[in-house]
């Protein structure tokens, strides 16, 4: 996906140019808070938050709403499942890089079952067969390896992230076999369709949650920063303390 690469390059060039740093407060308690939130680029991040929010309001949210209300539910489930099945190679690679063979086994079986019995991933048969879905990406992998997240970053288009998250996005791209193929129109169209659908599918999944946050939060930027970090930490904890059994649901279970 050269488009996303161009976007990343633009973001990387823009960031230092726009980098307005927050001033470190003198008051000890305020300073402790400043270090705790670890958001030295807050003024710049808030600008990108406003830009993204505007883009979302005029573009992504209407698309997601049209998709949510204009297409049948089984179609949305199918699209979601196909997209998540296409992520199988990246999830599998990261499971292995995280040193989670049981999770890797789940991912492999999910890919095999859903691509065949699940008709190229339209149906998530594997979840019902004892191979539940889990999160794995290169950002989580780096965290498992001990790389700290670094300060908070609110990226244009991508949203909440961190320097580790940016490396994660790059790592995922490099690990994705679909990014290794040629540069023909078919490949390019496939890439665009997939990215576009992923954006709409993801946004549609957060319709009511994001509306609630924006309606209830007094500072949605700070609320999303906290939610993003907590959610990310939960995913990392799950990857670090994997409790998956080697045997699937249908096989007699060992005593815990």
């Amino acid at each position: 996906m050269p488009a996303s690469r161009r976007l990343l390059a633009t973001a990387a060039l823009l960031l230092p140019a726009l980098a307005g740093c927050a001033t470190v407060p003198q008051n000890p308690e305020a300073r402790a808070y400043y270090h705790q939130i670890n958001d030295p680029l807050e003024p710049t991040n808030r600008v990108f938050y406003v830009v993204n929010d505007a883009l979302d309001t005029v573009l992504l949210k209407p698309l997601a709403l049209a998709y949510h209300y204009g297409t049948p539910e089984f179609f949305q489930h199918g699209v979601h499942n196909v997209l998540s099945n296409l992520d199988t190679p990246v999830v599998l690679a990261n499971d292995m890089l995280e040193g989670n063979p049981r999770r890797a086994g789940d991912t492999l079986m999910r890919g095999l079952i859903n691509t065949t019995v699940g008709l190229v991933g339209i149906f998530d048969v594997a979840s019902g067969w004892g191979y539940p879905k889990h999160s794995a990406d290169f950002g989580i992998t780096l965290a498992v390896w001990g790389v700290p997240a670094g300060p908070y970053l609110y990226l244009p288009v991508f949203g909440p992230s961190s320097p580790r998250g940016v490396l994660g996005i790059g790592g995922n791209y490099a690990l994705d076999p679909f990014s290794w193929f040629g540069r023909g129109y078919v490949v390019q169209d496939f890439g665009f369709t997939r990215s576009g659908l992923t954006a709409v599918d993801t946004r549609a999944g957060y319709l009511s949650d994001l509306d609630k946050i924006k309606a209830q939060a007094l500072d949605p930027y700070a609320t999303l920063r906290s939610l993003y970090r907590q959610h990310r930490q939960a995913e990392i904890d799950a990857a670090m303390h994997d409790e998956t059994w080697t045997v699937p649901d249908w096989y007699p279970q060992p005593a815990k």
Binding site: Y33, A217, L218, D219, A222, S226, Q230, A234, A238
Partner: peptide, 28 residues
Amino acid sequence: AEGTSMRLTQQSDYAGFIAQNNNNIAAL
């Protein structure tokens, strides 16, 4: 819920809002 704490999230919201309003509790 799924790893996100309600009171921690709410605390971040209020702290962010107060900081944006010159540490003024009356604004909150």
